[in-house]
């Protein structure tokens, strides 16, 4: 999707390919998904926290649905929407030259959908928790709404927003069901969770142990960071 990271990363520590390949795919996909989710999730979170319009609750509910839906259902909808005949698929072919299903870009889309609610809900909670008098003071100083959002509200809410971005990154790294369906087990899209599944049932127990441990390490690092960033009430 976005060529943020060169495809061939420098494998400086000579990590064996059975870890390196899925790890680099997972990291790259999750990073690309997180970039998209950060921009869209923080923006929508801001709108939900600050806007006073009817239907706010409904919008938040709909965009939170991937939290409550089985990942297989999310994967099914993405498969049929992105891959089934129709305008969306035509647009993909027009933009990328091929449909996104069964490609690397497809898993990025799946991870975006799965991780978006976390970024949106954490941002919404953090932004709603900012003392409105700071914003009133900024209005009295003559700052435009955009400048208030960028220079006052978001910096004051930054801990919760960063926590949400970190959670979204973790969720993107950890997605299994939706990724599996949209990738159709293409080797280009074998992420860490899928590699672990394969190792458990078709590979060696030692490889499974290592793959699981790496993922626990990543997840624990993220959660410890989120814990230090303090408390918001995303749900």
């Amino acid at each position: 999707m976005i060529a943020l990271i060169p495809h061939s990363w420098l494998n400086a520590f000579a990590i064996p390919p059975w870890i390196w390949n899925p790890l680099s795919i997972s990291l790259r996909a999750a990073l690309e998904a997180t970039v998209v989710v950060t921009v869209a999730g923080v923006a929508l979170g801001y709108l939900l926290a600050k806007g006073r319009f009817p239907g706010r609750g409904a919008i938040e509910t709909v965009f939170s649905l991937p939290m409550a839906l089985p990942p297989t259902v999310v994967g099914y909808y993405l498969l049929t929407r992105l891959g089934g005949p129709g305008p969306i698929r035509d647009a993909e072919v027009h933009l990328f030259g091929h449909p996104l299903t069964f490609t690397f870009a497809g898993i990025v889309v799946a991870q975006i959908v799965e991780s978006f609610p976390y970024c949106m809900r954490f941002s919404r909670a953090a932004i709603a928790g900012v003392d409105p008098r700071f914003e009133q003071a900024a209005r009295a100083m003559g700052l435009s709404r955009w400048r208030i959002a960028l220079f006052v509200t978001l910096p004051l809410a930054r801990r919760g927003v960063i926590a949400g971005i970190a959670m979204a990154f973790g969720r993107a790294m950890g997605d299994f069901g939706a990724t599996m369906i949209i990738s159709g087990s293409a080797p280009m899209a074998t992420t860490m969770p899928i590699a672990l599944y394969n190792a458990v049932f078709y590979g060696s127990h030692e490889q499974a142990m290592v793959l699981a441990l790496v993922q626990v390490g990543v997840a624990l690092t993220i959660l410890l960071g989120v814990g230090r960033l303090g408390r918001v009430r995303p749900w």
Binding site: R171, M173, G174, D175, G177, I194, L196
Partner: peptide, 11 residues
């Protein structure tokens, strides 16, 4: 205790 939120279900 929060690990299962972001840990892959396969782990």
């Amino acid at each position: 205790g929060s690990l299962p939120i972001i840990l892959p279900p396969t782990v």
